[in-house]
Nucleic acid binder design. Structure first.
Lengths: 329, 329
DNA sequence: TATCTTTCCGGGAACGTTACCGGGAAGGTT
DNA sequence: AACCTTCCCGGTAACGTTCCCGGAAAGATA
């Protein structure tokens, strides 16, 4: 149960703790003979150094915290994979937390990560009120936002231009001749608000003035199927549905199919994220590419720089969205 | 940059470090007045206790390591989500590592987790040689295997019966009248071998004696598209393809579509895992349900028990696979 | 008043590791 | 022979926290 420690290695090889430490860390001031003895003793004991003690001493844990809404959404799975691919090379470990779109859980996750003394944090913020971000700011921990923007603009982030996403979607659906377009949005987070602005503004400019009932947020604990079902039951009769992300679009498609609604003949559906599975769906899903995996990679690279050189240099990357037309619209 | 510590809180509230510690941990032997003073000082300083120091003292980090092949595969994303849902309630943190089907990376991941002094490990083993498992065994860390079995049978695990999976698939495809069935398998891991046994044995019993060229492993760094492409180019002419998992089945479908092959008219496709997106594909994917999310939940529950009571009691869960027939076969 | 509880608090050791510093032994230089 | 390097090595403090133990002050009992 209890791991063997440096002192055990030292005793077994007949040297002091300091010497054992130097030998294991390839420091100078150790003769080849004793170094060999120490290494062999460590091997025999199955010695595994404690990152806890190291971290306590050095002030760095070689660990990065990542907070997303849920890893079940392939979008965030890809983001995390991207982050991992960058941090792995630098021997950083990743501590994963999920907020499930709940600001309280987000705050709790950040708090736990700070207790763990992670060297940095990558966060996909859920709250429109930047409480978690403020908390991070106060604690002076290097951090980067990913996928979603925070209201506070000078914060480092890697996102895709949200206003353009909303505008692009509206533009496309208008061009397809739609006049009654439902927007099933995420709730709370600032990116959702920006997409909504871009979406509604573009509709207005095209002379389509829909009431607020045409934008439906999916709140915590709610499922897309419920929200969409309610809309259809109350007879809003949309000809097209724009969803906050592909995952939600897929859920919407499932509900539509269940009800026997034909896509896109009766109702068109589009999403955002360009998940790779989108092209394999029935029908293939029209979406907006947001350079998904680049987000993870980019945010990790920025965080690496911030952790290594502590200049206050700020970096914000706004990726350009691109429409991907397929058969669902 | 540098966090405020317990000593800072103590000084600011005019008490000793011991008293500050007791006050913050709701211990007795602190007067209400001083407790309030300490709490206020901690609040004002934005004090965040260090899990490092706590862990060093207590021997527990309230942290669990999880090693999967890649979180990009929704199967493992669901497993991790299940694990998370259980461990979150007990305030455990999760350290995530990916092996990418590479035994060396798997071993490195386990090693890193041990250095971090995680309280337990959940592993989806990649190697058929149980080196990582042996390493875990030697270090006496509580651990559970998930999703894949190890050759060593007395190890705790939560898996779906692999032999049955292979048999079920073969049975189904035979019933559909197929005689030339390609198996695109994973490589190395023991579960893959068991599925292959079940698959081939069932074919043999049905009088179908295919050569070894009908089972194709996808090796590290290889893509399903390449392997399948090579098979088709060499003119093996299968009428059905059974894939190790849905993710691979989707990749296979993509390649088939790219080549203009009709599914299932020219070639039928089936997978394993019953990912939720399967029913939305074109065509909907025949698959085998393996109680995906139950795996994560179950493994986390077992691990929790092992971490809390250190009896050597061993637990192995073999879930029952279930065929899900859809239009792709 | 003397003794005994009770209540509250502080000192110190320990968890496992690393860096700093000082010192002994061996060998080379004047 | 005296001194100076060079090469190795060990002791010690420190990282931030918790628990154990001892002790002071105040109140209760004789």
């Amino acid at each position: 149960m209890t791991h063997s420690k440096l002192r055990d290695v030292a005793e077994r090889s007949g040297v002091s703790i300091s010497t054992a430490s130097r030998a294991l860390n390839n420091r100078a001031d150790v003769s080849p003979a004793t170094r060999a003895r120490v290494l062999r003793a460590a091997e025999e004991l199955g010695y595994v150094p404690s990152s806890l003690a190291k971290g306590l001493w050095s002030g760095s844990t070689k660990t990065v915290g990542v907070v997303v809404t849920t890893i079940s959404n392939p979008f965030y799975a890809n983001v995390v994979t991207g982050i991992e691919s960058v941090l792995d090379r630098e021997a950083y470990n990743i501590v994963l937390n999920s907020s499930h779109e709940d600001p309280m859980r987000e705050l709790r996750a950040v708090r736990l990560l700070l207790e763990q003394r992670v060297d940095g944090i990558i966060l996909a913020p859920v709250a429109s009120e930047p409480t978690a971000v403020e908390y991070l700011e106060k604690n002076k921990v290097p951090y980067v936002l990913v996928g979603r923007r925070a209201r506070n603009v000078e914060v480092d982030h890697v996102v895709c231009d949200d206003y353009s996403i909303g505008a692009l979607a509206a533009e496309h659906l208008i061009k397809r001749g739609h006049k009654r377009i439902l927007f099933i949005n995420s709730s709370q987070n600032y990116s959702a608000q920006l997409r909504q602005e871009g979406f509604c503004q573009t509709l207005l400019e095209a002379g389509i003035d829909q009431g607020p009932e045409w934008v439906r947020p999916v709140r915590i604990g709610q499922r897309v199927e419920e929200v969409l079902g309610a809309v259809l039951d109350e007879g809003l009769n949309p000809t097209a549905i724009f969803c906050f992300c592909d995952q939600m679009a897929i859920d919407a498609m499932r509900e539509l199919k269940r009800r026997g609604v034909r896509i896109p003949d009766d109702i068109a559906v589009m999403g955002v994220d360009n998940l790779s599975v989108g092209e394999m769906l029935d029908p293939p899903l029209t979406t907006i590419d947001v350079q998904n995996s680049q987000m993870g990679i980019g945010s990790a690279q920025i965080l690496l720089r911030k952790m290594q050189q502590h200049d206050g240099y700020s970096e914000q990357i706004n990726l350009v969205p691109r429409l991907v037309e397929r058969a669902s619209t």
